[in-house]
């Protein structure tokens, strides 16, 4: 059951909107960027937690927040937003959440890949 308070792992809304604005070509390109680039940002986030570099942790979460949002990865975006806010107020609590983004990314990448496959070819 989806918790109504929690944002969905994948919301097709923003995805459709991108489709209308930029067509399949843009969506394919953005998805590819997202799927290849996000693991690097998550690596950076985890390394920052490891070295207690809260500023970098906040900045990585900040980047993750927007890029995940554009493609409809709302759960990941929300998680990143929480970590970003905590990086300033309570970094230890933020660091406690730092293992979550990777899990959320793995979850959403399946849905995203599937949605991409259903698009007309670029």
């Amino acid at each position: 059951m989806q918790d109504p308070q929690q944002p969905p792992v994948f919301d097709p809304g923003p995805f459709k909107e991108l489709m209308e604005v930029g067509g399949p070509e843009l969506v394919h390109e953005l998805c590819e960027l997202f799927l290849t680039d996000t693991p690097n940002i998550i690596d950076e986030l985890e390394a920052a937690v490891e070295s207690e570099d809260w500023e970098t942790m906040g900045r990585a979460a900040h980047t993750l927040k927007s890029s995940a949002f554009y493609l409809g990865a709302l759960a990941l975006s929300n998680l990143a937003k929480s970590i970003e806010v905590l990086a300033g107020d309570d970094p230890v609590a933020g660091a406690a959440l730092a293992a979550e983004p990777r899990r959320a990314f793995v979850e959403v990448s399946g849905a995203l890949t599937k949605a991409c496959e259903e698009l007309p070819p670029a």
């Binding site: 604005v21 930029g22 843009l26 953005l30 960027l33 980047t63 890029s67």
Partner: peptide, 16 residues
């Protein structure tokens, strides 16, 4: 923009 996804999206908007 240091985030390639945002950068791609904005450049697309400029083109449009």
């Amino acid at each position: 923009d240091d985030d390639p996804i945002s950068l791609k999206l904005i450049t697309n908007c400029v083109g449009r």
